[in-house]
Nucleic acid binder design. Structure first.
Lengths: 243, 243
DNA sequence: GAGTGGTCTAGACCACTTC
DNA sequence: AAGTGGTCTAGACCACTCC
């Protein structure tokens, strides 16, 4: 039986949640894996089963765990790499909704521009991996992405063949570099297209673009990747429910 | 002690939640009011206190109730009338963030345009109240709203002096017409400004606008109001966290 | 001090999945 | 049948608010 750590004035279920969260964050419990049952956890940490339930419920709420009745409790696989497409409606020539292909057109190590070093919390001019990536449907570019990674933590990534990397980057970050993206902050704005992007995205001058900035973070909130994506505003539609 | 209604195969806490939800929806419990304590509810419905807690927790989660430690449980006041400003950054001449004034520049009863009757689930050409409203800062228009209401349910609204109506409409719908807005579906798109809006919003030709469509609904999901708001895309910034 | 919600216990029984 | 999570009970004690 392990003792609960942390401030003893905090509720037990919160201290237990913190302990379990650490199992996930430290990757002792891997994505997709089953974790011990609530009774086992309760016994291990010396709390009542109801208290263990409460801790588990909190972690489900945070999106760290998933519970399946009769099967068990599992570490959730984060998977929002495709989630840019919440903001756009793209369809192919046949009118079907499709997931665009990905093409990395540039990848190099460079000194971080000031905004990038600020976002990634790196020293001014620290080394970063920069990528230029296109998303295409039927071979036509419809989204342009600039992606920056801290070079220090992503050295293995540079060894990969860019042509071999699929459309989902985050699973690659996980498997190759041990960096797990758990959440992200996004910010949307509108700008008028500049000549280079007009050429890349096959749009006229004077058309508006949606610009999506995303700072991807690990479980502990530390910045992992910063990207800026641009797509034609005509394709943009965002739906949400408020209350 | 009241018996729990509904399908007996459903969990008790869900049937209890349904019963309590009905108290709010039917306005027997009014916005802001304190409701009975969990022990009283548990006794009234013949369930254990823990089961009552579970039902209350669900309604808090749904946004219907609020609990305050040591004070009691209260019916939440829905208040997202100002929430358009999640999407825009507006400041006055002094650079401070401010809540814009409101001016109803037109209000009349008309036959519903087809999209409006579709959204509000009315018969084709049913009578609706139409309003043109401006939001201004330092007297300068920065947001133009078109608002439609089903005339049948909002007759008392037409009797009000438009100059007396403040910036928040939903509390007025509630107090004057007994219509409570509980949630809303919003949809954002981008369009190029048309000459009338260029004049109203004091922007150049060829600037993009953000268009926000909002369908406001009651507790039971029935449509109450449909509005379309337009503002300059340059002022637009939407931030969100995903996971 | 009385009343409220928040935490915690130690069970029982049920529903679902897997073997 | 065994193991899992989901529901439910009947309490105890604590922390907070209000009078």
């Amino acid at each position: 039986m392990s003792a609960l750590k942390g401030d003893a004035r905090l509720p037990r279920y919160q201290r237990l949640a913190e302990a379990l969260r650490d199992e996930v964050v430290s990757r002792r419990w891997r994505a997709g894996e089953q974790i011990p049952s609530e009774n086992v956890i309760a016994e291990q940490y010396g709390v009542a089963p109801g208290t263990a339930r409460q801790a588990l419920a909190q972690l489900v709420d945070e999106g760290l765990l998933e519970r399946q009745h009769g099967r068990g409790t599992f570490v959730r696989r984060p998977s929002f790499d495709q989630s840019l497409f919440r903001f756009f409606r793209f369809s192919n020539e046949a009118g079907e909704r499709v997931v665009p292909e990905s093409r990395i057109v540039q990848r190099e190590v460079m000194s971080a521009p000031s905004e990038v070093s600020r976002q990634l919390q790196l020293a001014e001019g620290a080394e970063v991996i920069f990528m230029n990536r296109l998303r295409l449907i039927d071979g036509v570019p419809i989204l342009a992405e600039q992606i920056w990674l801290p070079a220090a933590r992503f050295a293995p990534f540079m060894a990969l063949d860019t042509a071999e990397i699929g459309p989902l980057l985050y699973p690659v970050y996980d498997s190759e570099c041990g960096e797990v993206v758990a959440r992200a902050d996004e910010s949307l704005t509108v700008e008028m297209v500049t000549p280079p992007y007009a050429r890349i995205l096959h749009v006229e001058e004077n058309t508006p673009l949606i610009v999506i900035d995303r700072l991807a973070r690990g479980f502990d909130g530390s910045p992992i990747e910063w990207r800026r994506s641009r797509g034609p505003a005509a394709q943009f539609k965002y739906q949400t429910e408020i209350r």
